[in-house]
Simulated assay, not measured.
Amino acid sequence: MAIPFRRTSKTRKAKRRTHQRAKNPTMIQCSNCGASIKPHTICKECGYYDGKKILDVKDKN
């Protein structure tokens, strides 16, 4: 196996890794209760999806 002639500098390594970062997930407001949810998912607070009741969600109180 070949051995690199020179060490890879910190700057060169950082430039190569500029796109390897975690991105914030996209969040939307639930149309029924206004809670923040990921798109195309059932709301965990009220159980609605696309204006229709999908799940029966129990109160935490």
Rank of each mutant, 00 (worst) to 15 (best):
M1D: 04
M1A: 03
A2Y: 01
A2R: 03
A2L: 00
I3L: 14
P4W: 15
F5S: 00
F5Y: 06
R7A: 09
R7M: 08
R7G: 06
R7S: 10
R7W: 15
T8H: 12
T8V: 01
T8L: 03
T8C: 00
T8G: 03
S9E: 11
S9A: 02
S9F: 08
K10N: 11
K10H: 06
K10S: 01
K10Q: 09
T11D: 12
T11C: 10
R12P: 14
R12S: 07
K13C: 01
A14Q: 09
A14R: 15
K15N: 15
K15F: 10
R16Q: 13
R16L: 00
R16P: 00
R17G: 03
R17V: 02
R17E: 09
R17T: 09
T18Y: 06
H19R: 05
H19G: 01
H19Y: 14
H19E: 11
H19S: 07
H19F: 01
H19W: 01
Q20W: 13
R21W: 03
R21I: 13
R21D: 01
R21E: 03
A22C: 11
A22T: 02
A22K: 12
A22E: 10
A22H: 04
K23V: 02
N24G: 02
P25Q: 03
P25V: 01
P25H: 14
T26W: 10
M27Q: 12
I28P: 05
I28A: 04
Q29A: 15
C30I: 00
C30K: 01
S31C: 06
S31R: 08
S31T: 05
S31K: 05
N32A: 02
C33E: 10
C33M: 05
C33R: 14
G34Y: 04
A35P: 07
A35S: 12
S36E: 01
S36M: 08
S36G: 11
I37G: 13
I37L: 08
I37S: 01
I37F: 01
K38F: 03
K38C: 11
P39I: 00
P39V: 04
P39T: 04
H40R: 14
T41P: 04
T41L: 12
T41V: 14
T41F: 07
I42T: 11
I42W: 15
I42Q: 15
K44V: 06
K44M: 05
K44S: 15
K44A: 06
K44R: 07
K44Q: 13
E45N: 15
E45Y: 12
E45R: 12
E45L: 02
C46E: 13
C46P: 14
C46H: 10
G47D: 14
G47M: 11
G47T: 07
Y48R: 05
Y49A: 10
Y49R: 11
D50E: 11
D50C: 14
D50V: 13
D50S: 14
D50T: 05
D50P: 11
D50W: 15
D50K: 08
G51Y: 10
K52W: 13
K53M: 11
K53Q: 13
K53N: 05
K53S: 09
I54N: 00
I54H: 06
I54V: 12
I54E: 06
I54T: 05
D56V: 13
D56S: 09
D56Q: 06
V57N: 04
V57E: 09
K58F: 14
K58G: 02
D59N: 09
K60E: 14
K60D: 07
